[in-house]
């Protein structure tokens, strides 16, 4: 057994996310050229790679913000975007797509908090409007989540009154409020001033320690090394190398990985 397989066995054999030969093109440019990988329940996987390598596009495919041109993605054993009836695949209607998205949280590079709602309302919007939770319970849960991300005193503030790091922590709380099986992070610290990166990474570390399944597109190699069970290096729409951080980041076997890591390190 390889090291990677041993590790997957340790975190639990059951895969939560399965991507099989995922392909995506924008016009004539093929941005994903057959991505296949599995993420185990409770695993934290980071995807690194140069800009334009397709990392964010792959993440957005999992949440159906982009449509696949080929291949398939399964989350929790359920095929994303289609329903299989016999040997036919039926495209899902809007309501079904919305239902599939509920169990997948997403944290964006630019936070995307709702500016017309307070911090608490940002967090309760999904639970109350989509999951039909009672407003009082949703609010209590939101306040508990705000305490967890260290923003208990900001519950009535508007997003415009917060720093970038605080906004991103609220965005993580908003994703958590939907009680997702999986959270996708799309370069969560890339839009932050350097001194604010740490507070967001701390929250993500706690989340990882609590057993949440996470896929993190990031340039923070330190986070990838310390927190993630596996790291995938993507370049030009393909996964070049995937495995434990100490192998991929420490002793990469592929030349492109070596070049990228030495460039980011300097």
């Amino acid at each position: 057994m390889t090291n990677e397989a041993l590790h997957l066995h340790a975190v639990g054999a059951e895969p939560l996310v399965v991507a099989a030969d995922v392909r995506k093109r924008f016009g004539s440019v093929e941005v994903l050229k057959g991505i296949s990988l599995q993420v185990a329940k409770g695993e934290v996987l980071s995807i690194i790679g140069p800009s334009g390598s397709g990392k964010s596009t792959f993440l957005r495919c999992i949440n159906q913000l982009e449509r696949l041109d080929g291949g398939a993605i399964f989350v929790g054993g359920e095929l994303i975007g289609y329903r299989r009836v016999g040997d036919k695949l039926h495209e899902l209607v809007d309501a079904e797509i919305a239902r599939q998205r509920r169990s997948i949280g997403m944290v964006f590079q630019r936070f995307n908090l709702f500016p017309h709602l307070t911090v608490t309302e940002n967090i309760t919007e999904g639970p109350v409007q989509v999951l039909r939770e009672r407003p009082g319970e949703a609010r209590d849960h939101a306040h508990a989540l705000l305490e967890r991300v260290g923003l208990g005193e900001k519950r009535d503030a508007y997003p415009s009154e917060l720093s970038g790091g605080q906004q991103q922590r609220v965005a993580i709380a908003r994703a958590l409020a939907m009680r997702p099986k999986l959270i996708l992070f799309d370069e969560p610290t890339s839009a932050l001033d350097p001194e604010l990166v740490g507070e967001v990474l701390t929250v993500m570390r706690d989340l990882a320690a609590s057993g949440m399944t996470m896929i993190v597109v990031t340039h923070e190699l330190g986070f990838a090394r310390d927190v993630c069970q596996r790291v995938a290096f993507m370049d030009r729409g393909q996964i070049v190398e995937i495995g434990e951080p100490r192998h991929v980041l420490g002793q990469p076997t592929q030349k492109r990985t070596q070049e990228f890591i030495s460039m980011v390190r300097t």
Binding site: N63, Q64, L65, D94, A95, A98, R99, R101, R102, I104, G105, M106, F108, R110, N112, L113, F114, P115, H116, E125, G126, Q129, V130, L131, R174, A175, M178
Partner: peptide, 27 residues
């Protein structure tokens, strides 16, 4: 309204009309 607002509303599982009514129109 910023494209990210549409995507954030979709990613908390809002159907299209609810997204327009609750998130997009108020902005």
């Amino acid at each position: 309204v910023d494209k990210g607002q549409y995507e954030a509303a979709q990613s908390i599982g809002m159907p299209r009309l609810q997204m327009l009514r609750r998130i997009i129109m108020p902005q």
